[in-house]
Design a protein around this nucleic acid. Structure first.
Lengths: 208, 208, 208, 208
DNA sequence: TATGAATGAGCCTTCATTCAT
DNA sequence: AATGAATGAAGGCTCATTCAT
C-alpha cells in the first residue's frame, strides 16, 4: 500500500513509461516491464492508455510541445540586439537540454520510427517557428547593415547553435562511458561548453 | 538465381542485415525479415551467424573500425600546419559522414542498448586517438605560441568539428521530412555546410 | 440523458444486450460493447446480471418462451378443421418469424454452444407441445378418415411447415447479400413465399 | 512419436481445425486449442497458416467449393425430364448433406461473421448456377406447356427443395437433443424424410 | 551448405469479473 | 444505484533459436 501507488497509479505508469521509453526506446520497452516496474498488473497499463502506441504518444506529444514552446518563445527579449538574442537563445536552449538531455535522441528515434508523425507535430508548433525566424532575420539584417555582424545567413547561425547544443548532449553519454567521466567532471564540462558555445557563435558573427 | 547470391549467401546476408540494421535499428529488424529480403531460409541466418546479436556485432564492429580508422589516420599530413590539419580533418570527417550518414545514429543507439560494448570498441581503436591527440596538441601549442591561433583547448576544437558534422547528418533526415527538402536542395545544403563548417572553425581559431 | 434511460438502466442494458446478442452472437458480443452502447459503466452490466452468461440466459429464456408460446397456442381455433388449422399455423409461424427473423439462428447457435441448456428450455415449455400435437393429430385422423386428406404423418406435416419457414428466414440474409436484393424485393419475396408455403402444404395434404 | 504426427502435422492441424471450427464456431475455437488437440505447439499452427483467419479460410473455401460443385453439376442427366431432374437434384442434395451435415451452419455463420466474403465465394462458383438455372428452366417450361407440371416458378421449386433439406439437417441436432433420439431412430428418420421430401416436391408440381 | 519443422518465450491486447467507494 | 480501478486469464501473433536431415 505504497502512498504513491494509492494516490495516482495512472501518473505512476506515465512516469515510469517515460523513463523506460527514454532509456531503452519504444521497441525495447514492453508494457509488462512498465507494469512490473510500477507495481501493477499489465492490464492496467492498457486500461488507462488502451495501446502502447497511445501511451507513447501521450508522453511524446506533451514533452515535445513543452520542449519547443520554451525554445521558440523569445517574446520577452524585445529590447536586445541580434547578438544578444542569439547568445540568449543559445544559452536557454542549452539549459533546456540540461533539463531534458534525452529529448534529442527521443525525437530523432521517434521520427525515424514513424515518419508520418511529423505532420502531427508541425501542427502542435503552429506558426511559432516562422514568426521567430522572421523577427530574428529582421534583427540580423539590421546588424549586418550596421557592419556589426558579418554577412551571414540566419539559417547557418541557427544550425550552428542547435547543432553544437544537440550534439553535445547526444555525444555526452558516449564520452561519459568511454572516458569514464565522473559526475563532477561532467558538470564542469557542461559549464565550460555552455560558455564556449557562446564564444563560438560570437566569433562566427564577428566581421572579418 | 543471381550468381553472386548463389556463390556467397553468407555475404548476401551480411549486406542485407547491414542495410536493415542501419535503416531500422536492431530491435526493429528480425531475422525473418533479413532472410526473406535476401531470399533464403531463416535458419540459414543462424547457421552462419549463430545469433542475431552475433550477426549485429560482426557488422557493427567492422563498420565501426573502418569508420574511425579513416578519421584518425592523419599520418600523411605531416607537412601541414595546425589550421590546415583541422580544416582537412573537418572536411574528411564530413566526407566520411556523407558516405555513412547513418553511422552516428547506429553507434549512438547501439551504445545505449548495450553500454558494455564500449569496452570492446575501445580495444578496436588501440591507441590511435591518444597518438593523434598528442600530435595535434603539439601543433596547436606551436601555433598559439606563434600568435597565429588564439589560446584555446584542443578538446573544444575537436568537439566543435565533430559536433557540427555529426549534428548535421543526424538532424538532416528530420529537416528533409519537415521541410520536404528534395534531393537537389539537400545536396546543395550539404555542399554549403561543408564550407561553412570550415569557416566556422577557422573563425573560432582566429586570434582576437 | 434520456429520461427513459435514466429511469431504467437495467432495462436499457437488457434491450441493448438482446440486440447485440442477436446481431453478433454470444461470443462476439462483449460486456464492454454492451456498456458502451448503452452509455453506462461496464461494471453496471455485472452489477445487474452478475455474469455475461446470466445476462444472456435471462434474455434467451424470455425470448424463447414468448416465441414458442405464440406458436403453440392454437386454443382459439377450435372450430377450424385440420387443413385450416395447419394453414393458420403456417401463416402465424411465418408472421412470428417476420418479427423475430434472427431467432432461429440464435436458438441454433445457443443450443450448439451449450447443449445442456435444452433441458432448461424443455421445462419452460411444459407440456404445451404434447397437448398441441395430440389435438392436431386427432383432427388429422378425422380428415384422413373422411378422405379429405391423404394418409400422412402429422410429424411430416409439421416438419414441412417449420422447415420451410425457418429455412426461408435463415437463408434470406445470404440471398440478400449474394443477389444484392433491396428492401422492396425482399418484402415482395416474403409476401409471395408466405402464400406459396401455404400452397405447398395444401398440395402436400391433397388426396391423390 | 505418433505416426500420424510424424507423417503430416500440417494436415493434422487442418483436420483438427476443421473439426473444431465446425463444432464450436470460429470465435469459440482458439489456436491453442487446435494445437493442444493435435499435440503440437501453438506456434506451429501459425507457422503453417500464419493467421487463424487464414487457416479458417483455407478450410472453408475448399469445403465450399467441393460442396457446391457437387450440387451444381447435373451435366450427366441430359436424358431426364424436369420432374426426374428435380427429384434427382433433391436426393443428391440430400445425400451431400448427409456427408456434410454441418455445412449449412458453417456457411451461415461464416457469412454473417464476414459478409464481404460472399464476393470471394461467388467467384469460386463461376457461372455454374446461372447455367444450371437456365437449363432447368427450359425443361420446366416444356413440362408446363405439356400440362405435365402446374404453372410454377422454378425459383419456388428450388427454394422448396433446398429449404427442406437444409432445415432438416439444421434442426436435426436440436431434435436429437430434445427428444433424445438415438442413432437408429435418426437414421430411420433420415431415410424416411429423404423419400418424403421427394413426395412433397412432386405433389407441389402436380397439375391441379 | 542449406532447409523445413518445431518450439518456448514473449508481446500487445481484450475480456469477464471483482471490489471498494 | 452506480462507478472507477484493478486483475487473472486468455487470445492471436512474432521471434530467435534449435534440430534432424
Amino acid at each position: 500500500m505504497d502512498i504513491k501507488t494509492e494516490v495516482n497509479m495512472e501518473q505512476a505508469i506515465l512516469d515510469m513509461a517515460e523513463k523506460l521509453f527514454i532509456e531503452k526506446g519504444f521497441d525495447a520497452t514492453s508494457t509488462v516491464q512498465i507494469a512490473k516496474a510500477v507495481g501493477c498488473n499489465q492490464a492496467l497499463v492498457h486500461y488507462y492508455f488502451r495501446t502502447k502506441e497511445n501511451l507513447f504518444n501521450t508522453i511524446f506529444e506533451s514533452k515535445f510541445r513543452l520542449f519547443f514552446q520554451k525554445i521558440f518563445d523569445l517574446s520577452h527579449l524585445e529590447n536586445m540586439n541580434f547578438s544578444e538574442k542569439i547568445s540568449y537563445f543559445a544559452s536557454s536552449h542549452f539549459d533546456l537540454l540540461i533539463e531534458n538531455p534525452y529529448m534529442p535522441r527521443l525525437i530523432l528515434n521517434e521520427l525515424s520510427r514513424k515518419p508520418e508523425s511529423i505532420k502531427v507535430l508541425r501542427e502542435k508548433l503552429h506558426s511559432l517557428p516562422e514568426m521567430l525566424y522572421a523577427q530574428l532575420n529582421k534583427d540580423l539584417q539590421m546588424e549586418i547593415a550596421a557592419g556589426k555582424v558579418r554577412n551571414v545567413d540566419l539559417l547557418d547561425i541557427l544550425i550552428t547553435v542547435i547543432s553544437m547544443n544537440v550534439a553535445l548532449f547526444t555525444l555526452l553519454p558516449v564520452a561519459v562511458n568511454v572516458i569514464g567521466m565522473n559526475s563532477a567532471m561532467k558538470d564542469q564540462l557542461l559549464k565550460h561548453r555552455r560558455e564556449e558555445n557562446t564564444k563560438l557563435i560570437l566569433s562566427y558573427l564577428k566581421p572579418e
